[in-house]
Amino acid sequence: MANVAISPENGVLLAFRRDLRLAVRSKGEVIQAMVFFVMVVSLFPLAVGAESALLKRIAPGVMWVAALLSVLLTLPRIFANDYADGTLEQLAISPYPMAVIVAGKMLAHWFTTGLPLAIVAPVLGLQFGLGAHELGVIVLSLMLGTPVLSMIGAVGAALTLGVRGGSILTALLVLPLYIPVLIFGAGAAEASMAGIDYTANLSLLGAGLLLGALASPLAVAAAVKIALD
């Protein structure tokens, strides 16, 4: 029996590994989010017609909106079960700071939502007639942007824990805050298609990622404590 150093890395790792293992044990949820993403994207050609020039033009926007909605649907997974079965209380009084634990949980959430979406995105992009270069930019923008969606989403998910109408309420809180990510993310691919410099968009997403990584654990930890009080 040994006591482990209560270091931030250990806390992040502990929470991350555990949530990842839970996601692996219930694979269904991870796959469902990916299938949802594919289906939403596939609806657009059916709705606006299969004209290839139009599809190509709207592809980045469609894929980003679909990614955003998929992430939105998975937000309850971050805290709702832990809240219901008493785990969240245990985490809140753990010697590890709450901010560290929620950081691990957000990372695990991204691993099981944003990352898989970024991986399947190129296949969908081909359906919309995008070239390799544009696909690369979309994947890169999703890689940089979806972690921010997990972070902002975690604040909303924590604030609405145990509140009636929780998931639609989460969407109301979170969607306006998602707008900058959507603009810069979809904008990067659009810029690359228009032959304009897209690195500024990606840099802004990267800046958002850094800012989120610094600020979101504190905000989420505060929100969780409010929910438990």
């Binding site: 006591n3 482990v4 245990q90």
Partner: peptide, 14 residues
């Protein structure tokens, strides 16, 4: 896991 979040690791025999 419960003990892990308390900051402990336990040996298999314990």
């Amino acid at each position: 896991d419960g003990l892990g979040f308390d900051g402990m690791t336990i040996s298999a025999e314990n």
